[in-house]
């Protein structure tokens, strides 16, 4: 079904990918690997989120076309799962685990302190686009509760103070993570 046509981008780049953005190649790889099966929608959406950082409307339209699925179907699946975001994410991300062990360890206070300090609600990005604060339901690191994941680094046994200090450092210390261990 031909719905809104995505805007044509830079003509030179079009050679790289018909959509005018080389990042679509990542989606194409998964599409091919999954043989354009409609059942693989979630895998393809995951690839798109990895490629763009979030699910752009354009990428959703592209995926729907490639898999020959209705737009509303693709949108419905994309909004069902918490992993998919339809909004751009901040440069840095702080994910506070709200699993039971972390709850018992008062992780809610960490969320509150982040919300206060950076004037965002959990699930939102600061207005300057620097930081996204989100919560998650158990990362399975209960032995380290309360747990915060800052730019993909799992930090254990956190308190509001330690988290705030580390987030401030990450924001002040330029882009990317702080060289910690991968999770």
């Amino acid at each position: 079904m031909p719905e809104p046509t995505p805007a044509k981008k830079d003509a030179a780049k079009e050679k790289e990918h018909p959509m005018g953005d080389p990042r679509y190649k990542g989606i194409d790889r998964v599409l091919k690997r999954q043989q354009y099966q409609q059942d693989a929608l979630i895998e393809v959406l995951t690839a798109a989120q990895e490629a763009f950082g979030y699910l752009t409307e354009e990428s959703l339209i592209y995926i729907a076309r490639q898999l020959k699925l209705p737009f509303s179907w693709v949108y419905g699946v994309a909004t069902f799962y918490h992993f998919f975001s339809l909004k751009p994410q901040g440069e840095h991300s702080a994910i506070v685990c709200l699993g039971t062990a972390c709850y018992v360890g008062k992780a809610a206070e960490i969320v509150e302190s982040l919300e206060r300090e950076f004037c965002v609600k959990a699930g939102q990005t600061t207005s300057d686009g620097k930081l996204t604060v989100t919560t998650t339901r158990c990362l399975g690191c209960c032995g380290l509760a309360p747990v915060v994941v800052l730019d993909n680094n799992v930090l254990g046994k956190e308190t509001p103070e330690t988290t705030l200090a580390k987030v401030r450092q990450a924001l002040g210390g330029g882009n990317g993570g702080n060289g910690g261990t991968p999770s």
């Binding site: 079904m1 031909p2 719905e3 809104p4 409307e57 959703l60 339209i61 729907a64 209705p70 737009f71 509303s72 179907w73 693709v74 949108y75 419905g76 909004t79 069902f80």
Partner: peptide
């Protein structure tokens, strides 16, 4: 053309890419 978006209490019926019904060409 129609489907469900979101989940739980935030579920909603959508047309097309959650766009205005009048613009959903399906």
């Amino acid at each position: 053309c129609l489907d469900m978006m979101g989940r739980g209490i935030h579920c909603n019926i959508i047309t097309g890419m959650n766009q205005e019904w009048g613009k959903a060409r399906s």
